[in-house]
Design a protein around this nucleic acid. Structure first.
Lengths: 189, 189
DNA sequence: CAAGGCATGTAAATCGTTACATGATTTA
DNA sequence: TAAATCATGTAACGATTTACATGCCTTG
């Protein structure tokens, strides 16, 4: 499982609580690896039992104790082993939009086009976020203009997200043109 | 759930068995929606109970009865409703390669580069498949040179796969260059 | 005063994969 | 003779989501 390594990955920099982890996850890896708190908490418990992380409870008034987790040497070893292990497969995806389009051959032209236009909006907004917000966040964590390791890698995955969005917008525009060009004015069957 | 509609989507063209469905799925939607037989069989049973499909058992010698499923009018309605319903969200993905890279900031340069080169090979092979095999398959089902609805939509999703692979190859090449350019000759911490 | 952030979790349900079980026929 | 194809499924496990449960403090 990869959520495990995702948590170790964040904890390699500094100790954090489950709640903190959810937040940093939402701000960075969320577009290619997301998780809910209800999955994070049990996973942290499991990692602690395995000896990859340790926790310290800090009492608070009015709130439950804050449980701060830190990575152990064993945790670092397992993280490193996982990171270095090559991924020699195509990442599997599940894409509802592609699935719907694939089966839309018997739909009316305008039904297909509204689906395409809806995604076009979504993807244009996403692209903007990669180019503005995410870019800004990365610049704010990379101290000077020269990027150190972690910031460079964040920037590299951000560029993937951006390129993916650019590609998808272009593909949606071209697909819209393809569908509109087809002879069938209405339904075809 | 979407596997449900995936099965209905295929059955809208002609009746099929679970085994057949697995095969057509592997040949077409597999790159954006895959499933195992152990998930397909129970799902077909559920769809039949729901009244979306009906089955007919054809006895065979030496093998279990062949259970051929056909779509019902209700099934067609539900499929159409799902297809027409707009997807106003970014499709969620889980990408191990991005996850590993994101956390590889403290790895040695050559460790990161071998990961990138491994994926580069994988993605180049994938690209070739989209450009050759898949393209060929689509041409073989679209009778003449003019594409009818279903073949056009298949071609449109194929183009997504191709564009995605092209984009990923370019991104991997550029990332490789970025990482190699960094000052740190070995480890940075 | 309602909504959201802080902070922890559990329970139930769903979705998906891997392993198991059977057994004939065909291909390498 | 071993592996693959045909053809059905079940069982167990693992991963993920949604709903529930508590309770204070801050912001709009």
């Amino acid at each position: 499982m990869s959520l495990e390594y995702s948590l170790l990955g964040f904890l390699q920099y500094h100790p954090m609580t489950g709640y903190d982890l959810k937040k940093v996850l939402d701000e960075s890896t969320q577009f290619f690896w997301h998780a809910e708190l209800s999955q994070i908490y049990p996973e942290l418990k499991r990692l602690e039992q395995k000896g990859c992380i340790e926790s310290e409870s800090l009492p608070q008034e009015g709130k439950p104790d804050k449980k701060v987790y830190s990575i152990t040497p064993q945790g670092r070893n397992e993280l490193h082993a996982w990171l270095a292990e090559p991924v020699d497969e195509v990442p599997a995806i599940k894409n509802q939009v592609l699935l719907k389009l694939f089966f839309s051959g018997t739909l009316q032209k305008d039904e297909i086009c509204s689906q395409l236009r809806c995604q076009l909006e979504v993807q244009r907004a996403l692209l903007k976020r990669f180019q503005q917000d995410t870019s800004q966040k990365i610049r704010s964590v990379s101290e000077t203009e020269s990027m150190t390791g972690p910031a460079l890698m964040w920037e590299i995955v951000r560029r993937y997200g951006e390129a993916q969005a650019v590609m998808t917008v272009r593909w949606l525009e071209e697909s819209l043109a393809s569908v509109e060009q087809t002879a069938k004015s209405d339904r075809e069957d």
